[in-house]
Design a binder for these strands. Structure first.
Lengths: 115, 115
DNA sequence: TGAACTGGTATACTCTGTGATACTGGTAAC
DNA sequence: GTTACCAGTATCACAGAGTATACCAGTTCA
């Protein structure tokens, strides 16, 4: 078994890529992050901002993302309770990824419209 | 029902984001694109370059990606046949996304190593 | 008084992406 | 002559991602 020194960077990079996919994988995490980073704080507000998401999926993802320190859930004990979600610094590190993906999506629609 | 003019950009952006996720969603498409763009051409070569992928998944994804014009499959009718995969121009438009994700992954490992 | 909002939970279901294992026919090297 | 490479295909099976629908307690609006 040979160790290919030339390929060590490629190996590190593909590992990095797979790490990232692992963390933000699935249909909803990036849209939710994007929504919260765009200033949406309330549960129904986030829900309405993401076409196709169900209450259940949003609820589940928010819980998981809170556990993973991607967001903070703030509760004001008024009646009824006021719940607000906020992004963390860590969450905002995904901005370059999200921006790249939004740009790809916009260019792609443009292309389809043209062609 | 009110139409919120302020949110039209946000709506377009989240749609673009969801489009992109739709196209490159799943665990394997981006790693495969990355591998091929890095110069891997042969089936087993690509397979070896992506930790964890199975022959079956690679085979399926390559087929789908060929149908979607993301890659080209070139067959040289030697015996046994020589098969080579190449990226298309369209495929390469994902570079910014892949780069952003690799950078996130590298920074993330760095952070974990430190903390 | 009833409708609509809030922030979710409960239950039941689908389904497909993914994994594990084995196999094929041909070639080449030890 | 057996092992290993190539480029895959075939079969089976499963977890869990995602969907659909209904529901709750409390509040505000008309």
């Amino acid at each position: 078994m040979k160790i290919d020194l030339q390929n060590r960077d490629a190996a590190r990079e593909i590992q990095a890529l797979q790490d990232t996919i692992y963390v933000i994988g699935g249909k909803w995490k990036l849209p939710i992050i994007n929504s919260i980073c765009n200033g949406n704080k309330r549960f129904r507000e986030i829900e309405r901002s993401i076409p196709g998401i169900t209450t259940r999926m949003l609820s589940r993802e928010l819980k998981e993302m809170e556990m993973n320190k991607l967001i903070i859930r703030k509760v004001t004990p008024t009646s009824p309770v006021l719940v607000e979600y906020e992004s963390t610094e860590y969450c905002r590190t995904f901005s370059p990824v999200i921006i790249a993906m939004i740009e790809w999506g916009l260019a792609h629609r443009e292309k389809i419209r043209e062609g």
